[in-house]
Design a protein around this nucleic acid. Structure first.
Lengths: 201, 201
DNA sequence: CCGTAAGCACACAGGGCGGTGTACATAACA
DNA sequence: TGTTATGTACACCGCCCTGTGTGCTTACGG
């Protein structure tokens, strides 16, 4: 019980230096990038002494990895769990999130770190594959002829939209959504888009 | 006439420290990324003293900008100038280049520099728009209903393939090409794909 | 033969980086 | 009361980075 969740107190501040560090990381990494954000600045933003930060994380690498790991659920959930949509609508809904979600940091991380062996790069790959798999699941539900292929294609569209948005500084997701619509229509036998209720019963 | 192209001599080496510097930049930036490539290393690779490098380029930023600017023609030409292909084939040929071409550095540059005002970021945007425009031209030639839209869509596919290839460490261009085929077929009135010879005469 | 332009070798400044060492403060718990 | 876990403040290290200053070498051109 040497962990920080030991007692009700919280020692000094509102409890959880980790949380503040990760919060600051999330903000700064996204605003400035990973490489351009120093630990000094990060700790200042988190109102945490550098000494403390290095007691919670063995190094910046671990922090980056954890930062990416935490991002996982925020994007996936809320899109694939909407049972009120038909599978087809759910596939398309994946292209509506970017406005709310800042922008997939995995591409940036992979580019910035530039080391495929970095744990964060591993997380990035896992995440990408997870998204593709989820899309493939939805595609299967929607009755696609080749769900894996459609999932991979839609995942590529998401990445393309993210990258293009970043480079051009203009939202490219509508374009991606338009492509997605074409792909879905051409991959799913006509009219085979059942409501979840009808499908499950 | 204080420039280096002043005379036939070449002073010391095979003439053109600039060329060697840019050559080394092209190689190193691509292999290691921009931020991870120091001027010391770059100058060593170019067999140029650091002092000389800073006499040719006011700073690393200018070097990066020039590096991106030079990249322009190498990708565009050779794909869009192949008059032996039908417009449709030309559109698809754009997805075959990645094997020969290392990988679009503009996305990486935009991410690494992380400053939309950086001249290199400007070049990146210009390049992306140029590619989309060229694709739109080819799409128009191919008889697409909405060439601009198709060009933008195909450009997004290229970016998506580049980004995904980078993150997953696996070639994503075949997937992009498959999508492109679907898009093209759905955007071009059936069978309207004339040989250039027939079209021009 | 000398001037001059291009380039080199080397050292160094200044700064940010990741990371650490030391000494001190707080507050729960015994 | 004192111990211990947690965290702070601050200085510090070594490293690498971009960028310069200084003096020396090379080789063409007159």
């Amino acid at each position: 019980m040497t962990e920080l969740e030991k007692g009700p107190t919280g020692r000094r501040r509102g409890r959880g230096a980790r949380e503040r560090i990760l919060g600051a990381a999330q903000q700064l990494f996204r605003e400035q990038g990973i490489n351009r954000t120093g630990m000094d600045q990060l700790c200042a933003a988190a109102e945490v002494s550098k000494r403390t930060a290095y007691q919670h994380f063995t190094g910046k690498d671990e922090l980056v990895a954890e930062y990416l790991r935490r991002f996982d659920p925020s994007v996936l959930s809320g899109v694939f769990d909407r049972t009120d949509l038909t599978p087809r609508e759910r596939l398309l809904a994946a292209f509506d999130i970017p406005a709310t979600t800042p922008l997939c940091p995995y591409i940036g991380a992979a580019v910035e770190l530039h080391d495929p062996l970095h744990p964060a790069s591993q997380y990035a790959r896992d995440y990408k594959k997870a998204v593709a798999a989820r899309l493939a699941d939805a595609a299967r539900e929607a009755g696609a002829a080749d769900p894996e292929q459609l999932g991979e294609q839609l995942a590529l569209l998401l990445d393309g939209a993210a990258a293009r948005t970043r480079v051009l500084n203009a939202d490219a997701f509508p374009t991606a959504a338009a492509i997605a619509a074409v792909l879905i229509d051409s991959a799913i036998p006509a009219g085979d888009d059942r409501r979840p209720a009808e499908a499950s019963s």
